[in-house]
Design a binder for these strands. Structure first.
Length: 191
DNA sequence: GGAACGATTGAT
DNA sequence: TCAATCGTTCCT
């Protein structure tokens, strides 16, 4: 029996990505609570040359092929983690990369984790957000309906406040407009 | 076994 | 503009 939570994320990544804007991430870390609001996402699909899943299932990307509503966390550039929300049907590899959140609670912990004071530099990038929230590979495969990392429905962002554009940092499928962010939000990684 | 590359970041 | 830094994937 599937949970409502998983069902709500079982659609195509390209459809889920803009819908996830405004959702809340609650991280329990060493007895402290960190909260952020998703303000920037990117969709990655199995039929997408830029996606880790485009050449089929491998040990690294297997979580993307599992149930929706799980975390897919990967290590890149020898030093950074990036966090995705798995979407789509089981057996189909796709997900949504969270590129930026707006810090709501636990800012001092985020400052400590990031080693910086400037609020605007705490969570405005996929690896910055992971470092601020203490997210690493141990959380890959985690069910996001449960602590210590929970995804909760927040206030929906009106369509006219959602900007759709091309993705960042990729070299394949560069023209696909599968990046979404909240217009005017200061925590978006890049305009 | 070896090499090329990467959904990034921060400093120059 | 470029170095840091290493796991994953693919080729030999």
């Amino acid at each position: 029996m599937k949970s409502d939570f998983a069902i709500s994320l079982s659609g195509a990544a390209v459809e889920i990505a803009p819908w996830l804007l405004g959702w809340i991430l609650v991280r329990e870390l060493d007895g402290e609570t960190l909260i952020g609001r998703i303000v920037e996402t990117e969709a990655y699909d199995q039929e997408d040359a830029a996606s880790h899943s485009c050449r089929g299932e491998t040990p690294r990307n297997s979580v993307m092929f599992g149930p929706s509503g799980r975390a897919y966390v990967y290590f890149t550039y020898g030093m950074h983690y990036c966090f995705n929300i798995v979407t789509g049907a089981e057996g189909y590899g796709c997900g949504v990369l969270v590129r930026a959140v707006e810090p709501l609670e636990g800012l001092e912990i985020m400052r400590r984790n990031r080693g910086r004071d400037d609020v605007s530099q705490l969570t405005n990038g996929p690896a910055k957000f992971c470092q601020a929230f203490g997210i690493d590979k141990n959380l890959s495969g985690h069910n996001l309906a449960e602590p210590p990392l929970k995804l909760e429905l927040g206030g929906q962002i009106p369509n006219e406040q959602i900007v759709q554009t091309t993705r960042i940092g990729i070299t394949k499928a560069v023209t696909q407009p599968w990046r979404f962010y909240v217009k005017g939000n200061p925590f978006v990684s890049k305009l």
